[in-house]
């Protein structure tokens, strides 16, 4: 465990909590893509099946349980409790265009052709693109609430910190996971445009709105 990995995990946790609190406090999930949140719930479910097969550490187990529980709570708030505020008309990204190719790829390119490993690979690939419905929704409506941009910032920062963690681990532990690294690079690149807008607009006190 190095500082980049730890801050990455905490950044991920911050993102998840920010989103949950935003929805809970405002009693509304306006501007949030339920499809992205469903994909993240699927990501955590397929990745953390190893909770049943291997124990890494108390930290590892607790964080996995927290991530899974929070992602299901978020999906529940969007599709059940605050369903009336869910902006489904703008959440029109076709998720099958992500899930089907990612599913196929995880069968073709993986570390080991075993059920759990294929599901882990699927979750890594799916996570890298799971934010696309949310970004698509923002590009469609042309704006995002500031709190939503904080969520996106921490969610993007998390994988960027993991990239530094992987460089660190490569040099100091000889650890290298090509699948995670390539997917992590793709995932981080998808946030670059958003990071630019976040720094140039939101951090200067302006609302994130896109030119028409």
């Amino acid at each position: 465990m190095n500082i980049f990995r730890l801050t990455g995990d905490l950044s991920h946790l911050a993102a998840i909590i920010i989103l949950l609190l935003k929805i809970w406090k405002t009693r509304s999930c306006a501007g949030i893509s339920g499809k992205s949140q469903l994909l993240f719930a699927l990501v955590f479910t397929t990745r953390y099946l190893d909770l049943f097969t291997s124990f890494i550490s108390l930290y590892n187990t607790s964080m996995k349980l927290i991530y899974v529980a929070c992602s299901y709570a978020t999906v529940y708030l969007i599709y059940m409790k605050f369903k009336a505020t869910y902006d489904g008309n703008h959440d029109t990204f076709r998720v099958e265009f992500l899930v089907v190719p990612v599913g196929g790829l995880s069968f073709l390119v993986n570390h080991d052709f075993s059920p759990l490993e294929i599901l882990w690979t699927f979750s890594i690939y799916l996570e890298s693109v799971a934010i696309l419905p949310q970004l698509f929704m923002i590009s469609k409506t042309g704006e995002a609430e500031t709190i939503t941009t904080h969520y996106l910032f921490f969610l993007g920062l998390y994988r960027a910190l993991y990239l530094i963690n992987w460089i660190w681990r490569y040099y100091f532990e000889g650890f290298f996971d090509l699948i995670a690294v390539v997917a992590g690079v793709v995932q981080t690149i998808l946030y670059c445009d958003f990071f630019y807008l976040y720094v140039t607009k939101v951090l200067k006190g302006k609302k994130l709105s896109l030119p028409a």
Binding site: R5, D9, H12, R47, D50, T53, S54, I56, N60, M63, K64, Y67, H111, D112, S114, L116, E117, W120, Y162, A180
Partner: peptide
């Protein structure tokens, strides 16, 4: 053959 490859990251 292990049941799965241990992944220590989240």
């Amino acid at each position: 053959h292990a049941l799965n490859i241990p992944h220590d990251e989240l």
